[in-house]
């Protein structure tokens, strides 16, 4: 059987500051190398909701403040509610950095009123003030949820001022090995709700964490074709080397 997936790339021209494109490259190549048909549908301000509904896997990346403000209305009012529905139906998704924050209930700046989010994830973010340091560094964590990925390490780079706190409907993705994680306090990094993952490991999260990419592809196929589909193994030596090099650098 010829499988085929459509990946929604949310706001590639707005929410794409730190090499976020790497995630799309990783997902598409890993499908192609396995003979899975794949297409990427960029979803930005001008796209309507119906385009989004046709997709099988969702990705949204990080942004600069101004770009995020430009996307915010459309995200909260138009795309957000659709995404929420899709995620409820187990469509897999990845939200990194600013997208992870924006998918929560709100972001509370140090001064001023909270900025509402899309409430896709049960979490909120607070900025502790200029006196508290931004969390900026290479980082690593060990996955605790989902069970299919439990025990593997993830590596990346984080750069955020906001501290994120998960609500009861959100499970933590991983335990911090190095770096700040969600808030620098509780020792957790990222979050997961059904098949939707959020992480502070910004930009190209998936290439060095290729097993997470495969997990997302696996869930997308499972959802679309209604059965478990075993993914063929790929030679991942470059991925392993780059992953290992970061672990050795910081742990």
């Amino acid at each position: 059987m010829n499988y085929k997936l459509t990946i929604a790339w949310l706001y590639p021209d707005l929410m794409s500051t730190y090499g976020d494109r790497g995630n799309i490259y990783c997902l598409t190549r890993r499908c192609q190398w396995r003979g899975i048909g794949v297409s990427v549908l960029p979803i930005t301000l001008e796209n309507n909701k119906q385009d989004l509904k046709k997709t099988d896997l969702i990705f949204m990346g990080g942004a600069q403040d101004r770009q995020q403000r430009v996307a915010a209305d459309d995200f909260i009012q138009n795309k957000g509610p659709i995404l929420k529905e899709m995620i409820k139906k187990n469509i897999p998704a990845l939200f990194v950095c600013a997208a992870y924050q924006a998918a929560g209930h709100y972001y509370k700046p140090y001064q001023g009123d909270p900025i509402p989010g899309a409430s896709i994830f049960d979490l909120h973010t607070e900025h502790p003030g200029d006196q508290k340091q931004r969390l900026i560094s290479n980082c690593a964590a060990k996955i605790i949820n989902p069970t299919g990925l439990k025990g593997i390490t993830i590596v990346g780079f984080e750069n955020h001022g906001g501290r994120t706190y998960l609500g009861p409907k959100m499970k933590p993705l991983a335990e911090v090995l190095a770096g700040g994680g969600n808030n620098g306090d509780d020792g957790f990094e990222g979050g997961i709700c059904r098949n939707a993952i959020g992480s502070y490991y910004h930009g190209p999260f998936l290439p060095k964490n290729w097993l997470v990419a495969d997990w997302l592809i696996g869930r997308a196929l499972e959802k679309k074709y209604g059965k478990e589909i075993k993914l063929s193994l790929l030679p991942d030596s470059e991925e392993k080397q780059a992953h290992q090099a970061i672990l050795e650098k910081i742990i």
Binding site: Y18, G19, R21, G22, N138, F157, N159, G203, P204, P207
Partner: peptide, 9 residues
């Protein structure tokens, strides 16, 4: 710069 994410751009 410590962060090399930009190579994906």
């Amino acid at each position: 710069g410590r962060d090399v994410s930009w190579i994906w751009d």
